[in-house]
Amino acid sequence: MTVQAIVIDDSSAMRMILRRIVTKLGFEVDEAVDGRDALDKLNAAEQVPDVALIDWNMPEMNGLEFIQAVRSDPRYSRLTLLMVTTESEQSQIVRALAAGAHEYLIKPFTPDAVAEKLEILGLTAGV
């Protein structure tokens, strides 16, 4: 079964970069421009994606608020959450993990770094 991902970032360039990387890994990819847009897409989706790649700083519902919203809704209990952000302070990583993020990747990154984070999360194409 194909792994489904949603990339949540207000930068269209970053969405394109992540879409390309994750598509190359064999995932199906949807996009959202911020946390609110992502929640709307999750609510409307027939099938919840397997993984969300989430920016922190977004104008309408930031990444941390999105994680908190998803974690409080049992419909999304199987959604894996990977924060992908420029926020690189140790205290912020701790905050994101405490809120329910499963992994954390700091921008800038290489395609290999994305693949390795997804591997840590047990997500490989065809699983």
């Binding site: 690189s88 302070e89 140790q90 990583i93 701790v94 994101a96 993990l97 993020a101 992994e103 954390y104 990747l105 700091i106 800038p108 990154f109 290489t110 290999d112 770094a113 390795e116 984070k117 591997e119 840590i120």
Partner: peptide, 20 residues
């Protein structure tokens, strides 16, 4: 470097075993 840290290190290990 940050780029080196991104390569396969689980976030919980980064928090526990490294300091910025």
């Amino acid at each position: 470097t940050q780029m080196e840290m991104n390569r396969g290190l689980p976030a919980r290990h980064l928090v526990r075993y490294f300091a910025r």
